[in-house]
């Protein structure tokens, strides 16, 4: 089986691993690093559950091979907040009941982090458009939109939403 050694930075932690070249970034994060917060919903880039930030931009980690992430900065949901803390968006999702089963939530959060970094106070229709690649089957999106709007309203004029990794999560040795 063809493998390669890659070095990349995940949630602020730089690491080197040998990976089969056909292994997706999603599978690598979940299986090799134990970062199971990145969820795999469709494996074809149609649901957004596996969204992570690659060099700051949201991408579908099921459509990237881990080898392609050589030298990149990855942020997963585990890296959004420090241990036992919640990122403002995570707090808003909690306050507005913006999650039910929680499966789409990590991807939703990372997509929303990206939106808020570009537009600190987005309107509902911009939020809906930006999140249209992240499917949710539980909430009807209503409270997700409210939660992001609330963070936007709270952050208007300030820069409280970070896109960088804060916590490392528990990356497997």
């Amino acid at each position: 089986m063809s493998t390669r050694t890659i070095t990349l930075t995940v949630n602020d932690q730089t690491l080197t691993r040998e990976v089969p070249v056909r292994k997706t970034l999603a599978d690598f994060l979940r299986e090799d690093l134990g970062l199971t917060g990145t969820h795999v919903g469709c494996e074809l880039g149609q649901c957004g559950a596996c969204t992570v930030l690659l060099n700051g931009d949201p991408v579908k980690s099921c459509l990237l091979f881990a080898v392609q992430a050589e030298g990149s900065q990855i942020v997963t949901v585990e890296g959004l907040a420090g241990k036992d803390a919640l990122h403002p968006l995570q707090q808003a999702f909690h306050d507005h009941h913006a999650l039910q089963c929680g499966f789409c939530t990590p991807g939703m959060l990372l997509a929303a982090v990206d939106l808020l970094s570009r537009n600190p106070a987005p309107k509902a229709d911009e939020i809906r458009r930006h999140l249209s690649g992240n499917l949710c089957r539980c909430t009807g999106y209503v409270n997700i939109v409210k939660a992001i709007e609330a963070v936007g309203a709270g952050a208007a004029g300030t820069d409280t939403v970070s896109t960088g990794a804060v916590g490392a999560g528990n990356i497997q040795k």
């Binding site: 795999v40 909690h94 009941h97 999650l99």
Partner: peptide, 22 residues
């Protein structure tokens, strides 16, 4: 409308779904 006890771990990516059981 008590806020959910299950949220924090799910929001942090610490849920334990079937595929996470390794």
């Amino acid at each position: 409308s008590v806020k959910r006890k299950e949220d924090a771990r799910l929001l942090r990516g610490e849920g334990r779904y079937l595929d996470d059981l390794n």
